[in-house]
Design a protein around this nucleic acid. Structure first.
Lengths: 351, 351
DNA sequence: CTGAAAGCGCTAACAG
DNA sequence: CTGTTAGCGCTTTCAG
């Protein structure tokens, strides 16, 4: 066990600890030769400075925390990777933390603020059920990304930084598209309908599209999934589609609030002898990369991952560096038409 | 910003800091009433103890680190979840850390040992290219899980704890199965063939099966993927299969060293008008859950995730608590026959 | 049962 | 350019 400390290095080099510290932290006020000698000893001994001690001492640290709710959803992978890149470009360090479904992300954020002297926080995923007072206690700028538009969610404009697609409009667009293909019995597989969440917003979009097109709303066509610790999963998609097929054999299309859910749904449809898209059209949400590898390629509402990630970090840094006020930004979603959707065939029944 | 410290709490309660510390750490030597009063104030103020300070001071801590190389491979999800559970059952805390492809996991482990007073380390994924001397410096028990059998990899028995399936035998079994279905032109999509890795071991299994069945080895049927920072990805599977189809139009089956690679390969095959499994059989490795949702359901060599995870933690704790010597354990892999493999049809060409 | 006091390893004034 | 020193917030003896 290497319990070697900065003191040992100092002794070994015949210098003071502060000189070693300076070498370690690339301070300008140090003789290059001394520094080289110290670094050499550090390398030889395999000395690693104790971060706990550093964090304890340092008054500030260029850290940004990324708190992700829903580790298993591949949609977040892309977001995380891109954000990390941007954060690094800004010469900050990313602290990535996954938050369990039952964990309170704001509480986690709070400890991180104390722990790691955060400069800012990005909340990724999860529902918007946070007490503004608790949020205010965080003491550093934070931004919600891909959790839905806060204003729409809460009914009034909150002074919370937020970036998302217009989930309602995006879902509406997807349903519109299905309707334009001739579908009238369209299923919905979702989650979190009863709470302020993207699931709710996308559900609203579903209803809005039906209304707009003068199609009746039928609750039998709506499946809400809530099994397991994570809801955005293939098994849940499978269950949702199974339920829907049972209840509505005349369903010719189904909208899923996430691509992973759509994939599970596809499997269920195939198991029931349904061909996709010939018998049933399936449309997902997110536009994740693996949807492009699925058979059939998944039609999906694509969230502009690159743009959202960049905007998220840009806004956060505006708040950090220029003390700008939190903003609400809506980025455009795009319908990605691939192979899992097709016009309704004449042979298909509509009761 | 909550810069409230243990001192503030002490003052607020009119007690000494050590008493607050005792309350915080469930020490026995404290008046229950005093404790209750302190806990009340802590709750009211929202005080969170600074972990850096705790880690700095505490001499030991029941922490186990899980170092995962290859974040995007869903195979590790299952392993992680189960291990976390076992570790928690042992009343230890899991420290999960993802390691980039280009990062040195042993170096990361070293800092964690210093930082977080680790009791043990699990290395998940990655190749076995570690210097035993550096490993020895870690100073705490560690175990390699799912990185291939170290003895087979290095040619001599190393005293390093290790748990894995017999990758070579498992791959051999998969190829055997394909051959038993009548296939003779069998492709291989792999990675890390030149280094001590599971990729190498599975490649050995491929060759062994061919030999055993007196089938010629044809390097044109072997695709090695090495693009991007992560190799176990669908795009890489896509590329591998594309290359193989170009080079060997007579290929009627393909073995992929991972399910994610197999999924990418399936997509490429489908894009080239090949039906799976009618035209080409595809077999993966790992047996991940989503393979069951893929269309067609993926035939795969299943690694016993539950058993491996449990054994890994059990062995690690044997080393920690009973100071047992490191062991090498082989767990059995199982062929999971699903829908992506079928007998070679008569119509299929074999040059 | 409780408080005072001594550091854990490091950084950052401050004084050479 | 470099060494000395005072803590960062917490846990843990050691005396009461």
């Amino acid at each position: 066990m290497s319990n070697i400390t900065i003191k040992d290095i100092a002794k070994l080099c015949g210098v003071g600890v502060s000189t070693v510290s300076r070498a370690l932290n690339n301070h300008p006020d140090i003789n290059p030769e001394t520094k080289a000698r110290i670094m050499q000893v550090i390398r030889e001994t395999g000395f690693i400075p104790n971060d706990s001690a550093r964090y304890l001492k340092r008054s500030e640290m260029n850290n940004i925390a990324l708190l992700v709710k829903g580790i298993s959803n591949p949609f977040f992978f892309g977001m995380i990777r891109i954000m990390e890149e941007y954060i690094q470009k800004k010469d900050y360090t990313t602290i990535l933390r996954h938050v369990g479904t039952d964990e309170d992300e704001v509480a986690v954020a709070m400890s991180l603020v104390i722990e790691r002297r955060l400069k800012g926080i990005v909340f990724l995923g999860g529902a918007f059920t946070h007490d503004p007072k608790v949020l205010a206690k965080l003491g550093v700028p934070y931004i919600f990304s891909t959790i839905g538009n806060v204003a729409n969610l809460t009914g009034k404009s909150v002074k919370v930084a937020n970036i998302a697609v217009d989930d309602t409009q995006a879902a509406c667009m997807a349903i519109d598209y299905l309707i334009s293909l001739g579908h009238t019995r369209i299923g919905f597989i979702g989650e979190g309908i009863g709470i302020p969440s993207v699931g709710r917003l996308r559900y609203d979009g579903y209803r809005r599209a039906l209304e707009k097109n003068h199609l009746p709303y039928d609750s039998a066509l709506v499946a809400e999934i809530n099994e397991g610790t994570e809801h955005y999963t293939m098994p849940n998609g499978y269950k949702g589609a199974s339920v829907l097929m049972d209840r509505c054999p005349d369903m010719t299309a189904v909208f899923c609030i996430a691509d992973v859910i759509a994939m599970g749904a596809c499997r269920a449809l195939a198991d029931h002898g349904k061909k996709i898209p010939e018998d049933v059209s399936v449309i997902g949400f997110d536009g994740i990369e693996s949807g492009d590898y699925f058979i059939p390629r998944l039609t999906s509402v694509k969230q502009p991952v690159e743009e959202m990630s960049e905007e998220t970090i840009r806004l956060l840094f505006e708040m950090i560096e220029e003390k700008k006020a939190p903003q609400n930004i809506i980025v455009p979603a795009k319908l990605l038409i691939r192979d899992s959707t097709a016009p309704r065939r004449n042979g298909q029944t509509t009761v």
